[in-house]
Design a protein around this nucleic acid. Structure first.
Length: 269
DNA sequence: ATGGTAGAGATTCTA
């Protein structure tokens, strides 16, 4: 008997500010697991009443002051997975791996927040871009060492839109951080270590698909200059378990919205 | 290598 598991990923851009919107997202999409990025909340200030409000008993988080931060909520028991890492020598709270106990055996979920990389796509002029490339290369190399990985899911804000139709204009974004060839090549290499693109599984590569719209656009919906920065990957053994996806675009139009929208994938495990 | 907006938390950084 297959169990349905709905996994939600969202760059919430402050978990404290958007607790109410998170409740609305959970009520609407009924996830079993919620992975957040950019919680921007030190661990000692994390809102500990939030799990009860969301109807999700279990929570794990890794936060810091001001920036970054990841958290996972779950309806079923979980524990922090040993493969949670600091990447490229920085303790900047960009990764949290959890292990869930499910009837068919444990499932590992990696929650990532990849560095945005600044504005200038040049590693000499911009250390933040160098950090981003180093981070993705390290993640690639790490998963290349575990090529037989199974029953695992990787989600998060990877801050790279790899395909032509993951951005509103491929040509105009080739020199824009998030869609430069060096970034998209690295992300593809990372994915190719053991992962299958769980969103493009449902949406053909020739169709536009976005999860993020800049705060800086006057009318984000009319301009529709989006990018697909948020991802859900599954190991190849779980490809056949993918049953549904949803990108909650309407959330971008809510009052005091995040610039990223919630992304849901359902698996029949 | 424009400037636009948003959040944290300090009067600027990161996205």
């Amino acid at each position: 008997m297959a169990k349905t598991l709905r996994i939600l990923t969202w760059n919430i851009n402050s978990v404290r500010l958007r607790q109410g919107l998170l409740k609305d997202v959970v009520d609407k999409l009924a996830p079993d697991v919620v992975c957040l990025q950019e919680t921007k909340c030190p661990d000692d200030l994390f809102p500990l009443d939030l799990p009860k409000v969301l109807g999700m008993d279990h929570v794990l988080f890794r936060g810091m002051k001001g920036y970054n931060g990841v958290a996972v909520f779950s309806k079923t028991p979980m524990r922090r997975h040993e493969d949670t890492q600091d990447w490229v020598g920085k303790e900047d709270c960009r990764h949290l791996a959890v292990e869930l106990d499910l009837p068919g055996g444990p499932l590992v979920i990696h929650n990532f927040y990849v560095p945005a990389g600044g504005d200038i796509p040049d590693t000499e002029l911009n250390p933040k871009f160098a950090h981003k490339l180093d981070f993705v290369a390290a993640a690639r190399d790490h998963f290349a060492k575990t090529p037989k990985l199974t029953r695992a899911v990787l989600v998060g804000d990877l801050n790279i839109a790899p395909l032509e139709h993951d951005v509103w204009s491929h040509k105009q974004l080739l020199k824009i951080v998030s869609h430069t060839p060096v970034e998209t090549a690295l992300l593809t290499e990372w994915q190719d270590t053991c992962w299958h693109d769980g969103l493009r599984h449902f949406v053909p590569a020739d169709q536009k698909l976005y999860t993020w719209w800049s705060y800086r656009a006057k009318d984000w919906e009319a301009a529709n200059k989006g990018r697909r920065l948020d991802h859900v990957w599954v190991t190849h053994d779980l490809k056949g378990a993918l049953t549904r996806h949803e990108i909650l675009k309407e959330a971008r139009g809510w009052t005091q919205a995040s610039d990223h929208v919630p992304v849901l994938v359902e698996l029949a495990l």
